[in-house]
């Protein structure tokens, strides 16, 4: 397998407090962990008592080009540790404020799973808002940190998806996307027009046969 020399480094910060029930996220994790140049961090495993090592986390951010929060939607938000992580790691002078430009230019997006289906996450649906409305605090924080915000990568109806092979397909798509991003074969040009990354076919450039 030949990889481009300057592969992009991807950091996935994964937060799931009940992993024995996390079918979709586990399948996605398996895909991500198999890839080189992808660092997969299970935050609940690394900090079971929420004692986040700020230095280590900041160092890790500096070492990667693409940052992903992977989590299931909990009460229209992230599981608690991911909020704790943001509160501590996005420090003044590091991520924002005076000289706080260490993350500038890095790409960022959320890879979320939601129990509700797409219809439910709409103005007229039961949740009264689209999914991105609920991601607003994260997305604004990312902008404040001068990072390059991409739309989220979403699995709607994640519980219903456990019946068929939708989860496997979603996880496979995740792996393909990560691979393309890592190998700089991902076309980011129409990202701003998408509500979520996997809204339509992934814009993966044709690999030049090598």
């Amino acid at each position: 397998m030949s990889e481009p020399k300057n592969a992009s480094k991807i950091l996935i910060l994964f937060a799931h407090p009940a992993q024995n029930h996390a079918k979709a996220n586990m399948a996605m994790m398996a895909q991500a962990k198999a890839l080189e140049n992808v660092t997969f961090v299970d935050l609940y495993a690394e900090y079971p008592r929420f004692k986040i090592n700020v230095d280590a986390e900041q160092q890790r951010l500096l070492e990667h080009d693409i940052i992903i929060f992977q989590f299931p939607i909990y009460w229209y938000s992230t599981p608690a540790i991911l909020k704790e992580w943001q509160d501590l790691v996005f420090e003044y002078g590091f991520a924002f404020g005076q000289d706080g430009n260490k993350l500038a230019g890095k790409k960022f997006f959320c890879a979320v799973t939601a129990a509700g289906d797409e219809l439910r996450y709409s103005d007229s649906g039961g949740n009264e808002h689209g999914l991105r409305d609920f991601l607003l605090p994260i997305e604004q924080s990312i902008k404040l940190c001068q990072m390059d915000l991409l739309p989220p990568f979403v699995l709607y109806g994640s519980l219903a998806a456990q019946q068929g092979n939708e989860i496997a397909e979603h996880a496979m798509l995740y792996g393909q996307m990560l691979t393309a991003m890592r190998d700089n074969q991902f076309d980011y040009s129409d990202m701003s027009s998408r509500e979520f990354i996997n809204q339509s076919a992934l814009p993966i450039k044709q690999q030049v046969a090598s």
Partner: peptide
């Protein structure tokens, strides 16, 4: 703010001697 005194530290403390940029602060 020193290496040991961090975490939930508000910017006005964190940047005692730094120029304030109020519009950027959460």
């Amino acid at each position: 703010v020193s290496k040991h005194h961090r975490g939930w530290t508000p910017p006005n403390v964190a940047a005692v001697q730094a120029a304030e940029q109020p519009e950027l602060k959460p």
